[in-house]
């Protein structure tokens, strides 16, 4: 889907809905739109690594599990 050797399977109806939104949103293709939203979500979780550090700082406080 995104390169010659990487494919992700999605439901056909979902793919159709993605295509409609991609078109309405001015994306050049469904692939571009999907790449955009996946990157956005991945970034969110990468940013969340800071949250992991915050959690680690509290671990070991005897009052909590």
């Amino acid at each position: 889907m995104f390169s010659s050797n990487t494919k992700v399977k999605v439901d056909k109806s979902l793919y159709a809905r993605l295509g409609q939104i991609a078109s309405a949103g001015g994306y050049s293709s469904t692939e571009e739109f999907v790449t955009h939203i996946l990157e956005r979500e991945v970034t969110r979780f990468e940013e969340a690594e800071d949250d992991e550090e915050v959690k680690k700082q509290l671990r070991g406080l005897g009052y909590i599990e």
Binding site: R44, E47, A48, D50, D51, V54, K55, Q57, L58
Partner: peptide, 12 residues
């Protein structure tokens, strides 16, 4: 109101 998926972020 932190960034990321957590809605509330605990801290010491």
């Amino acid at each position: 109101a932190p960034d990321g998926p957590l809605a509330v972020r605990p801290y010491f």
